[in-house]
Design a protein around this nucleic acid. Structure first.
Length: 272
DNA sequence: ATGGCAAGGGTTCCTTGA
């Protein structure tokens, strides 16, 4: 009995996965390195690199013992996945509904790490509404919903993480009145997220903390951080197979108070 | 006391973000 217990303990998979919209990897490199090391991160999803692949600091990250996959773009967007375990690229774009092709914006990575299917997303902001930016966001959500539906049917261990640019509910922002008619908070946008959740995905944060009010983004302007006027828009969506493994989750708020912070902070989860 | 951001790219300001 004791032997069996030790055996089981030794073979238990423990993983800490995080997601961080860095708002320029160049400016936030030291924050990322410190976070990876001090918080014992196994897998990190990054958004808003704001650089092309050639300018990503591969050496700095790989020297810490990580593998890296980058989907870069000049000036805007850009996503990456950093992992202690080998990464196999499945797709670096979210296919168009009409022709299955890339749309040229680096906002998506789908990879396999161990037996997990891990998807890194950076959704469009979409403001102002009733413009083509908003239409692009709705179209992106339509494509993501379609992708998630197919993905769900594979019954794999799926983790979709990143900056969703969606405030799901009133509790996910300091003042819902401020966000009326904002592209992060319209019914159309929220309904796409609901549809994805209705397939059977769950918001990891709400499993562990059903009624907590915490944020993952504070605007640089108007003293938003000092007044705690934030929003929770960075999310991990889990398939049931992963939700069963969820041990803990949280928002790494303190990094927002450091010098030269991103306007987002990392979110993380532990699987056991 | 009443205006208050940041980053990239490229130039002395524009775009984008949320």
């Amino acid at each position: 009995m004791a032997v069996a217990q030790v055996f089981r303990f030794k073979n238990k998979i423990t993983m800490k996965i995080a997601s961080f919209n860095v708002n320029s990897i160049k400016v936030r490199l030291e924050h990322v390195k410190k976070f990876l090391i001090e918080e014992n991160i196994d897998v990190l999803l990054l958004q808003e690199l704001k650089c092309i692949k050639e300018n990503f600091p591969f050496n700095e990250i790989e020297n810490l013992g990580f593998k890296v996959i980058v989907n870069g773009q000049k000036s805007y967007n850009g996503v990456a996945i950093i992992s202690k375990f080998p990464i196999k690229l499945i797709s670096n774009f979210l296919p168009n509904i009409s022709n299955g092709k890339d749309d040229g914006q680096a906002r998506f990575l789908d990879v396999k790490i161990l037996d997990f299917r891990i998807i890194c997303v950076y959704l469009p902001n979409g403001n102002p509404i009733e413009t083509e930016k908003y239409e692009y966001k709705l179209n992106w959500l339509k494509r993501l919903t379609s992708y998630c539906k197919k993905l769900y049917q594979t019954n794999e261990k799926i983790i979709i993480g990143g900056d969703f640019n969606i405030i799901q509910k009133d509790i996910d922002c300091y003042d819902p009145k401020v966000w009326i008619n904002d592209a992060l908070f319209t019914d159309k946008v929220k309904n796409y997220l609901k549809e994805i959740l209705n397939f059977g995905f769950v918001d990891a944060y709400r499993i562990i903390k059903p009624s907590s009010q915490e944020y993952s983004f504070w605007d640089y302007q108007n003293g938003a951080w000092q007044k705690d006027h934030g929003i929770r828009i960075d999310l991990f969506l889990l398939s049931p197979e992963v939700a069963d493994l969820l041990d803990d989750t949280g928002i790494f708020k303190k990094i927002r108070g450091h010098s030269k912070p991103s306007d987002h902070v990392p979110i993380w989860l532990k699987l056991n």
